[in-house]
Design a protein around this nucleic acid. Structure first.
Lengths: 331, 331
DNA sequence: GTGAAAGCGCTAACAC
DNA sequence: GTGTTAGCGCTTTCAC
């Protein structure tokens, strides 16, 4: 790779001049500029971003720290992040933490060493104390961190109420909930939303509430447990789409039908929810947009070195598909 | 962030000495070393990888250029890559190209500027001429590039034969193929494998062959087209799992049953194939391992500045699940 | 064993 | 308008 010095020499000017024309900073005679540009093209010169970074302590790079890129929710998010980043001339470093605290800490350290300009973070183990001495802007996705960091979240509580009420409206008379891991805020909020709607019902009992870990398999197991209980359950609100998919499978494996015997609704609105059989009703978060917004937010903090945080809480929406279309109560 | 100079000053030594103890290069008196280490810990010092990179032209970073992180195949691959990379002290930059040539070229240029040490590439538009002047090691995934680049691929042709024969063995008497985009090698090989098995059959006709683009939707449409033709089709080999999922849906929507009326088999072995209803039979590639191997390969080339390429072609395996379990012919 | 200093490729004062 | 030069934070000869 050619260096700025080679360009300067070949163009018969100083490195400063080359730098000026490259960055459009300072005045340069039209003529000189053209000459330089010509050599630049000829030598196929591009500035070393490493050297640039060393100067201005900026890397035009943002870190994206996720629990699991294999989870469609995060993959869609990542795609959104990458898209905006690229458009704005930023590069994204992907870090997969598997939800492991030590791994997150390691990644964070590496990101700092690499002078990333900002970090988009989705973690449920990290607390504010872990990152308070980190002076790189961070925005948190999916949860707020003590109100100390900018965040992009969505209305989990309201969404859960929406889901539960939808089941009710569809004629379900005994609605169970497969809650996500309670160390994750979204899971707690969704549980609260569910409880807010059902807890005063004559039929509500603790046995309608089981826990999973947001993965398919636990949705499957939880559903088996629910349906094998003595109570006749005719509606399941799964804490996320992945567990809902597991639920669908479990119901099917018991020889029951969705939605005739048991209606199912998920949460998230991942792309895969519309390809299950039957298609899954869900509370959709604007996942891709969350990625875009998070990136816009972090870029805003980076570029304008904003000090104050912003908190975005996005709306969710009910997507009604076949898994809750009970004919008997269709409206 | 503390610099090496601060550490040196506080420890009462020169920066060279600090550098020596940090990198375990050269001899340092035990005593001095301890002193330095103490200050390092005290100041929470970590070397700036930018500065290091500027020196040795290495960034301990690899670029991963993928068409679409949202596609489970690539997500699983990415996870494998990230895992090895991290273990070996490397960071991965994620680039999403959407299969767009210009986008790939842009990303490649950025990666070069950032001094990434190597690139793992999955592209079907890039040709060798695009990258021949790039002197960073590259390994190609999913296809070979004129034998000029190391590659990690799997046995697509054999896998396709396996799939088709499996359908035959299950008693299918008219097997259709939904081929992937023919600009993609894997899709061509799979088509060839299918043809090799069926083209001499008494029942084979062109109408049994339709094309999709490896996405769910086209699998759906292709299947509709197939099943609406006059021929009675009782087996479908979809070019990949995503299209197979679309196929499942289409069959279901026509009121037919899988596998009783039509057996379906996919290709890839993405995690999602085992959660469809019915579960999808497929030819599994060792996706995660491909990620691992690609990373090992690129790291090998980086660390040992290997000049000669290596070509890995991994085996695939038949995973028989419910979508091909025709009872009438079970063995 | 340890330090001084050059240099990685670039930007930004500061001169002229 | 353009050139000179001092860093950015580090590694690495080369002396001592």
């Amino acid at each position: 790779m050619a260096t700025i010095r080679e360009v300067a020499k070949k163009a018969g000017v100083s490195v400063a001049t080359v730098s000026r024309v490259i960055n459009r900073t300072g005045r340069v005679k039209k003529e000189t500029e053209e000459k330089v540009l010509e050599i630049v093209k000829q030598l196929n010169y591009t500035p070393s971003s490493i050297a640039v970074s060393l100067n201005n302590k900026k890397s035009k790079t943002i870190g994206l720290l996720l629990p699991d890129i294999t989870n469609p929710f995060f993959a869609e998010l990542a795609k959104g992040v990458e898209e905006v980043a690229k458009k704005k001339g930023y590069t994204v470093i992907l870090c997969n933490s598997n939800g492991d605290l030590q791994s997150e800490l390691d990644h964070l350290q590496v990101l700092e060493q690499k002078y990333v300009d900002g970090i988009i973070l989705s973690s449920h183990t990290l607390t504010y104390s872990h990152i308070e001495e980190c002076k790189i802007p961070i925005v948190s996705i999916d949860r707020t961190l003590d109100g100390k960091l900018s965040s992009v979240t969505s209305k989990n509580y309201e969404g859960a109420m929406l889901a539960t009420r939808h089941l009710l409206k569809k004629g379900c008379e005994r609605i169970a909930h497969i809650a996500g891991p309670q160390n994750i805020v979204t899971a707690r909020k969704r549980l609260e939303g569910y409880l807010a709607v059902v807890k005063d019902s004559s039929w509500y009992s603790d046995e309608l509430l089981v826990y999973g870990d947001y993965e398919i398999q636990t949705g499957y197991e939880a559903t088996l447990k629910l349906l094998n209980s003595t109570q006749k359950i005719d509606g399941i609100f799964a804490g996320n789409d992945l567990m809902a998919v597991g639920s669908l499978k479990a119901i099917y494996s018991l020889g029951l039908r969705v939605p005739e015997d048991v209606a199912v609704i998920g949460f998230d609105g991942i792309n895969f929810s519309k390809i299950t059989i039957p298609e899954l009703s869900t509370i959709a978060q604007p996942i891709f947009e969350m990625g875009l917004l998070a990136t816009d937010t972090i870029l805003d903090e980076i570029v304008n070195s904003k000090k104050n945080q912003s908190f975005h809480e996005l709306s969710v929406s009910l997507i009604e598909r076949d898994s809750t279309k009970k004919s008997r109560c269709d409206y």
